[in-house]
């Protein structure tokens, strides 16, 4: 009888000890990109507040995109990384840091996005480009443990980059 009880308890332990559930990632294996977003013209060139509901940094694995609504689709389908909260608005400069949760990842298009309406209404207002030419976005490869700094982006509300679709 004791054997049966012990076997039962052992079975429960074995069954339930296959894994221990959720776990945080090892800090050393985390990957980030970070940089500064500069708004050309300082605070003067920002559009009216009712059209700047959110500013987020978004890094896409796919580029170009099919249409404007695909920005949100890429986000929800896990093909893009984004800052979880809005970045500071109506400022001259803003720092950002974005975790790339499943490296290695090739980021083909890193942009600053502005939400001007409902959840599907976004526009790109700045693009990361090594040359400074916002019509030619640059790719970035992020490997496990990488912390890539100086992924800086300039935003010019008077001269927006071409939309990625």
């Amino acid at each position: 009888m004791k054997k049966i009880i012990l076997t039962y308890i052992l079975l429960i332990f074995i069954f339930s000890s296959c894994d221990m559930g959720l776990a945080p990632k090892e800090p050393t294996k985390k990957s980030f990109i970070s940089g500064i977003i500069t708004y050309k013209g300082g605070t003067n060139n920002w559009p009216p507040p009712d059209s700047v509901l959110e500013i987020r940094l978004v890094a896409f694995k796919n580029y170009p995109l099919s249409d404007s609504s695909s920005i949100l689709r890429e986000l929800t389908e896990g093909n893009a990384y984004f800052t979880l909260d809005t970045l500071p608005r109506f400022v001259e400069k803003a720092n950002y840091s974005l975790e790339i949760t499943d490296p290695p990842a090739l980021l083909k298009y890193i942009a600053v996005a502005q939400r001007y309406g409902n959840l599907f209404q976004w526009r790109v207002i700045g693009v990361y480009s090594e040359t400074g030419d916002n019509t030619k976005p640059s790719s970035v490869m992020v490997n496990p443990g990488d912390s890539l700094k100086n992924i800086n982006i300039e935003v010019d509300f008077l001269n927006l980059p071409p939309q990625p679709f």
């Binding site: 069954f15 339930s16 559930g21 929800t76 979880l84 959840l119």
Partner: peptide, 29 residues
């Protein structure tokens, strides 16, 4: 002992607000 398998789906748009919204596993309590 209770086992509950992993929820298959949640609202995907929660991703915009909740970090690691998809972190869910079967329960072994």
């Amino acid at each position: 002992y209770r086992f509950i398998n992993r929820m298959e789906t949640v609202d995907e748009l929660l991703k915009l607000q909740v970090k690691d919204y998809d972190a869910r596993v079967p329960m072994h309590i």
